[in-house]
C-alpha cells in the first residue's frame, strides 16, 4: 500500500506549487488557479488523514465537503471581481490593482 508519507509529500508539493503561482504570476486569474491548487492539496491531506489515522470520525470528510463549497464560492466571487475590474480598468494584471498603496 501507499505510505502516508508519499501522499503528504505529494500534497505539500502541490500546495507550494499553488502558493508559488498565487504569489508570482502577474495575471489575476492565475492567483485563483494557484488557490485552487492549494485547496486541492488541503483536500488530499484531509482525506489522507481520515483514511490512515481517523477513519472512525467523519470530521475530515465533512471538511472536504466544506472546502468544495468554499472553493466554488471563492471562484464565483473572485472571477466576478476580476471581470468587473477588467471592465473598469481594462487590465487583469494583479500588480495594477494598487490603489491601497501607502
Amino acid at each position: 500500500m501507499i505510505p502516508l508519507s508519499w501522499i503528504l509529500a505529494f500534497s505539500l508539493a502541490l500546495f507550494f506549487i499553488g502558493l508559488f503561482g498565487a504569489i508570482a504570476r502577474k495575471n489575476a486569474i492565475s492567483i485563483l488557479m494557484g488557490i485552487e491548487l492549494m485547496l486541492n492539496a488541503v483536500n488530499i491531506n484531509l482525506l489522507a488523514f481520515w483514511r490512515y489515522l481517523y477513519s472512525a470520525h467523519m470530521n475530515g470528510l465533512v471538511f472536504i465537503a466544506v472546502v468544495f463549497a468554499v472553493a466554488a464560492a471563492e471562484t464565483a466571487v473572485g472571477l466576478a471581481l476580476i471581470i468587473s475590474a477588467y471592465r473598469n480598468r481594462r487590465t487583469i494584471t494583479a500588480g495594477d490593482f494598487d490603489s491601497l498603496k501607502g
Binding site: L19, I23, A24, I31, G95, D98, S99, G102
Partner: peptide, 17 residues
Amino acid sequence: LRKVQSGRIQQYMLYTL
C-alpha cells in the same frame, strides 16, 4: 520602508511567506 506598502496583494503574500 515605504515600499512595504505597495498596495499589491501579491507582494504582501510574499512578505507573509
